[in-house]
Amino acid sequence: MKHVLAIGAALVLAAGVANAEEECLEVGSPVGAFYVADVTGPSAGTKLCYRCKFKDRPVVSIFAREVNDQVAGLVKQVDGVVGQNQDQKMAAFVVLLTDEPESAEGQLKTVAEKHGIQNTPLTTFDGVAGPASYKLPKDADVTVMMWVDGQLKVNESLKFGELSDSKVSAVLGDTEKILN
């Protein structure tokens, strides 16, 4: 009987691990279209699909469930990398995942002004889970995805406490994976 219980527990654990692996969009996967409300970008006040707009360009997308000082610092640094790589048509955008997108607009405008974010639109997505096809981990506070030619090259999920200077530097280094 103990062996049966042990085997059953092992199968349940294995199924849980398999489901956890399936939850994340894998590097090499195509990235799909989804719509956001642009708050600070060139299309401020409209809903659009940045995945569609940027097409095959090298793109950094930052999905956040909150935009605090740590996230704003990451965005500011990514914004600088985008500015330095305009010749390669690099792009970026931030997606605040929220159940109340309209109420977050003021905060995003303030963050963009305070941190001088110029090359990276701040947007909202209606729903904390994010776009279903992106399979954002439920326990991640921030997920950074990078793609080029519509194919995912980087998928890094973090909790706020993990967003250290060294982790931000590593994320910035990962932009080499999408630049030619």
Results as ranks from 00 to 15, higher is better:
38 D>T: 11
38 D>W: 08
38 D>K: 12
38 D>C: 10
39 V>E: 03
40 T>N: 04
40 T>E: 06
44 A>K: 08
44 A>W: 04
46 T>R: 14
48 L>Q: 11
49 C>W: 06
51 R>Q: 15
51 R>T: 15
54 F>H: 13
55 K>N: 14
56 D>W: 11
59 V>F: 10
59 V>T: 15
60 V>P: 01
60 V>C: 13
61 S>I: 14
64 A>R: 03
64 A>G: 10
66 E>V: 15
67 V>T: 04
68 N>V: 10
70 Q>S: 14
72 A>F: 05
73 G>Y: 00
73 G>D: 01
73 G>P: 01
74 L>C: 05
75 V>D: 01
78 V>P: 09
79 D>H: 13
79 D>M: 13
81 V>W: 00
81 V>D: 00
85 N>M: 00
86 Q>L: 15
86 Q>P: 10
89 K>W: 09
90 M>A: 14
90 M>F: 10
91 A>H: 09
92 A>I: 12
94 V>T: 12
100 E>L: 12
100 E>P: 02
105 E>Q: 12
105 E>M: 06
106 G>A: 15
106 G>W: 06
107 Q>K: 14
109 K>H: 06
109 K>N: 06
111 V>H: 03
113 E>G: 13
114 K>E: 04
115 H>F: 09
117 I>V: 15
119 N>W: 07
119 N>F: 14
119 N>H: 15
120 T>E: 05
123 T>E: 10
123 T>W: 10
123 T>F: 08
123 T>V: 09
125 F>S: 09
126 D>A: 15
127 G>V: 10
128 V>Y: 06
129 A>D: 13
130 G>N: 00
131 P>H: 07
132 A>I: 06
132 A>V: 09
132 A>C: 00
132 A>L: 05
132 A>D: 07
132 A>M: 02
133 S>M: 11
133 S>I: 12
134 Y>P: 09
137 P>H: 01
138 K>G: 15
138 K>C: 13
138 K>T: 15
139 D>C: 03
140 A>P: 13
142 V>T: 05
142 V>S: 00
144 V>Y: 02
145 M>G: 13
146 M>N: 08
146 M>P: 05
147 W>A: 11
148 V>K: 08
148 V>R: 04
149 D>C: 04
152 L>Q: 04
152 L>K: 02
156 E>Y: 08
156 E>W: 06
156 E>A: 10
157 S>Y: 01
157 S>K: 05
161 G>W: 01
162 E>M: 11
163 L>F: 03
163 L>H: 01
164 S>P: 13
166 S>M: 10
167 K>L: 09
168 V>I: 15
169 S>N: 11
170 A>L: 07
